[in-house]
Amino acid sequence: MEPYISVKNVSHKYPNGVTAIKDINLDIHEGEVVAILGSNGSGKTTLVKHFNGLLKPTKGEITVGTMNTKKERISKLSSQVGYVFQNPNHQTFLPSVRQELAYGCKNLKMVDEDIETRVQKAIDLFQLEDRLDDNPFDLNSSQRKEVAMASIMAVSPKVIVLDEPTTGQDHKGCKRVLELVRMFKREGHIVVLITHDMHLIGELNCRTVVMNQSEKIADDHASVVFSNKGIMEEAGLQPPQITQFANQITRFDETKTYLTVESIIEWMKANKEEDVKVGTGS
């Protein structure tokens, strides 16, 4: 299958001479959830800003769908790659949630009925019926983040990029983000996550790209990446606590990497006999 986003030998050098990403190759296919990890300044944001054309490669090429990002306008690319910024205050500014939802479609000069249907879809997806007339600034930070997300989704882009969606969120907020990501996937979107949140990646159990010092140093399933000590140390990352725990338990399957509490319990239930045997002492 042809990838939807294809990044070929892409480098980006800023006008000040700093090379932010170097020789990146990355294919993202339909239906994928991809987490991009790495410390600040590793180049992960620079990479992702290429997907909707905010940055153009100084070397190499990126195709999104059938579009070459170098030749397309940002507004057109953004209708296919929705980018939710980390701080909703950078994106939302209108006096009501309803206006926020319609804003992107209006920028694309869609006809009114079309806008209506898309806004309604976003309202349904995010269950915003009761908040339509609220001012986004009267909402709390996680609700405002969600409004920003919904207003990007109203354009119904193929790809949705979430920049640090769980930063500053409480446990409930983090769980909501997890739910939303799963919903986006179900709805047929590609989800790209820029995140530091190892718990989130663990729960999503998704493909994980690790950036370090402008280069891609890993691109594999989260369980593979999290169990690669060298990569994790190089990027200054630590797997979720539960993974660290499982690695130290002698009776667990050493060939497996456990990313969540539930996955271990599930595994133990499936191997109940072994559990009992070990439990009675050997």
């Binding site: 409930k172 539960i242 319990i265 439990g279």
Partner: peptide, 21 residues
């Protein structure tokens, strides 16, 4: 209270409940 405990604590608790330990 919609809060959580550290993952290891959550695990031990789930384990105790699931296997009656």
């Amino acid at each position: 209270l919609t809060l959580n405990a550290p993952q290891v604590t959550e695990f031990l608790d789930s384990y105790n409940q699931a296997f009656g330990k």
